[in-house]
């Protein structure tokens, strides 16, 4: 396809400095990302960094106030609570979902009757939007008409207030999130498992390996790449989760009413959103965002360090 190359070349070839052919191709192929980086990332980031050092209500021009937003943040008890809740949510959610997904994927990765049905059953929650989940979850969690309390009462226990109980709300939200997310992660694992060549298992079986040994020495190394990716990504997205908590804890879609009771389900993103969009403290919200960013960066760096220890790549 020489014609195409000729047409594209002049655009990228302004610099007369010699680039190897491979280098040219490299730049050309990452160009979509470069455009995004310059236009939709760098500029917004610079702007938001500036906002984080300003008093900015969106309706008037930002006013530089130095590090005041950050010092206020350090002393803000709701921010502390949101930070804790975010960690708590992530620490419950990520391992629970990963382990369950892996177990299900391994169980499904064989010729079972009704395989397709099982896969679909686990995937339907994934395709529900949070607004759908809100009404589906209510069928279970409604304190008066819900299935959960009906069963509890039948078994002679006290009904629980679920989403209006300060101690219960995060675990309940995590359970709902796992219900919704586990099928998706299971599919990722399943794709990874199906990449594991059958003959490796056969070889292991000939050597007398049992189920656990096969899992430990064949499956785990070969899907460690997928697992790693999945872990990094879930951690990052969980840390930034907003939609579930917004939809499930607010009244009539009012963001300021979400995060209750008494901030027991307040997470960082929700706090950021409330401060920024509901209370017009965009500067303060930007400061929260940057703190969140720094925390995430730290976590990811740790995970990348750990990656070298246990992820296996084919040479």
């Amino acid at each position: 396809m020489p014609k195409l190359v000729d047409r594209v070349k002049p655009l990228k070839n302004r610099k007369r400095k010699k680039l190897s052919a491979e280098g040219r191709w490299g730049f050309l192929m990452v160009s979509p990302y470069l455009i995004q980086f310059v236009v939709f990332l760098s500029f917004p980031l610079a702007a938001s960094l500036y906002f984080s050092f300003s008093k900015y209500d969106m309706l008037n021009a930002p006013k530089w106030i130095g590090v005041e937003n950050y010092t206020t943040l350090i002393q803000d008890p709701v921010f502390h609570k949101a930070l804790w809740n975010t960690f708590y949510f992530t620490i419950l959610f990520v391992p629970a979902q990963t382990i369950l997904a892996l177990v299900l994927a391994v169980a499904l990765n064989q010729s079972l009757k009704g395989l397709k049905f099982f896969r679909i059953a686990h995937f339907i929650p994934v395709i529900c939007s949070w607004t759908v989940v809100l009404y589906v979850a209510d069928a279970i969690l409604n304190p008066r008409f819900g299935l959960a309390n009906t069963i509890l009462v039948k078994l002679g226990n006290n009904p629980q207030p679920w989403l209006s109980d300060e101690a219960l709300i995060i675990p309940v939200l995590v359970a709902v999130a796992v219900w919704k997310g586990v099928g998706y992660m299971m599919i990722i694992f399943l794709a990874g498992l199906q990449n594991v060549p059958e003959d490796l298992y056969e070889a292991a079986e000939i050597e007398g390996a049992g189920v656990w040994k096969k899992f430990r020495h064949v499956t785990v190394p070969l899907i460690s790449g997928t697992t790693f990716l999945v872990l990094v990504l879930t951690t990052i997205t969980t840390f930034q989760s907003f939609e579930q908590i917004y939809v499930m804890t607010s009244h009539l879609g009012d963001v300021t009413s979400a995060g209750g009771p008494n901030n027991a389900s307040m997470v960082l993103m929700l706090y950021l959103f409330q401060q920024g969009f509901s209370f017009l403290k965009m500067g303060y919200a930007s400061a929260i965002a940057w703190v969140l960013f720094i925390i995430l960066f730290g976590i990811t760096m740790i995970q990348l360090k750990l990656q070298k220890k246990w992820v296996y790549y084919e040479k």
Partner: peptide, 8 residues
């Protein structure tokens, strides 16, 4: 990947 989209 780690930047909260809300920032932007």
């Amino acid at each position: 990947l780690m930047i909260p989209p809300v920032v932007m």
